[in-house]
Amino acid sequence: MEKLTNKEEQIMQVIWKLEKAFVKDIMAELTDEDIHYNTLSTIVRNLEEKKYVGYQAFGKTHQYFPLVKLTDYRNKFMTKAVDSFFEGSYLDVVSFFAKEEKISAKDLEEILKMIEKK
Score class of each variant (00 low, 15 high):
M1I: 04
E2R: 12
K3T: 02
K3M: 04
K3L: 08
K3P: 09
L4D: 00
L4P: 00
T5F: 09
K7G: 05
E8V: 08
Q10E: 11
Q10M: 13
Q13E: 11
Q13S: 10
V14Y: 15
V14T: 08
I15F: 07
I15E: 03
W16P: 01
W16S: 07
W16N: 07
K17S: 11
L18P: 12
L18C: 13
L18K: 12
E19V: 09
A21S: 06
F22H: 13
F22D: 03
V23Q: 00
K24R: 12
D25S: 08
D25G: 07
D25L: 07
I26K: 09
I26P: 03
I26D: 03
I26N: 03
I26M: 03
M27S: 09
A28Y: 13
E29T: 13
L30E: 06
L30W: 12
T31G: 15
E33Q: 05
E33K: 10
D34E: 13
I35C: 13
N38D: 15
N38M: 15
T42Q: 12
N46D: 13
L47V: 00
E48V: 01
E48P: 00
E48K: 06
E49V: 14
K50W: 10
K50C: 13
K50R: 11
Y52V: 07
Y52H: 01
V53C: 02
G54N: 15
G54W: 03
Y55W: 02
Y55C: 02
Q56D: 15
Q56Y: 12
A57I: 08
F58M: 14
G59P: 01
G59S: 05
G59F: 02
K60N: 11
K60W: 02
K60G: 00
T61R: 07
Q63D: 05
Y64I: 02
F65M: 06
K69A: 08
T71D: 14
D72I: 15
D72L: 15
D72M: 14
R74L: 12
R74I: 05
N75K: 14
K76I: 11
M78I: 11
M78H: 05
T79R: 04
A81Y: 06
A81M: 13
V82T: 02
V82R: 02
D83C: 04
F85V: 01
F85A: 00
E87A: 11
G88N: 01
G88C: 05
G88D: 01
D92G: 06
D92E: 12
V93D: 00
S95V: 10
F96A: 01
F97G: 00
F97M: 10
F97N: 08
E100D: 04
E101H: 03
E101Q: 07
A105F: 05
K106N: 14
D107V: 03
D107T: 09
E109Q: 14
E109R: 14
E110T: 05
E110L: 12
I111E: 01
L112H: 03
L112K: 10
L112E: 09
E116V: 12
E116A: 13
E116F: 14
K118D: 11
K118E: 11
